[in-house]
């Protein structure tokens, strides 16, 4: 252990701590504390599909220049169907599994596809 090492560790630890604090801040309600209205499929900054949530249990195909994505929906949960036709080489999004609330996202980087939740301010319930 050398003198400079200590500085590096302190720097790394503070970076980690800062990112955790940022994470806590975002998750605990100030930034992304949202009430879910829909799930959005975005391709190269263009919205290709917007599905209102909650949705009954179903699978939908979304066609686009990249091919077809099969999205599984169930309530507020969303995933890329693992048996979706392979439209990208690494298939990470297919293996990722379910996302269930913002700020969770599914990203297919090679195709620049982002699947994310959209909604208003966070509420526990809606009276109507």
């Amino acid at each position: 252990m050398k003198r400079g090492d200590l500085l590096i560790y302190l720097f790394s630890a503070s970076m980690l701590l800062f990112s955790f604090l940022l994470y806590l801040f975002l998750y605990s309600g100030l930034g992304f504390d949202q009430h879910i209205e829909s799930v959005v499929v975005e391709y190269k900054k263009q919205v290709y599909a917007k599905i209102p949530l909650p949705s009954p249990e179903r699978t939908i195909d979304i066609n686009g220049p990249w091919g077809v994505i099969m999205l599984d929906l169930n309530g507020y949960k969303v995933r890329v169907n693992p048996f979706s036709p392979p439209y990208c080489p690494d298939k990470i999004c297919m293996r990722q599994g379910w996302i269930s609330k913002p700020p969770e996202t599914i990203v297919c980087l090679p195709n620049r596809i982002i699947i994310y939740y959209q909604g208003g301010k966070y509420i526990d319930g809606l009276t109507h």
């Binding site: 790394s12 980690l16 990112s19 940022l22 975002l26 700020p103 990203v107 980087l109 620049r112 994310y116």
Partner: peptide, 18 residues
């Protein structure tokens, strides 16, 4: 990735990646 996709949600993955 953050600059490329400009998706602010990605911020939350930072601690795990670090």
């Amino acid at each position: 990735v953050l600059i490329l996709l400009q998706q602010p949600y990605l911020v939350v993955y930072l601690p795990f990646l670090l």
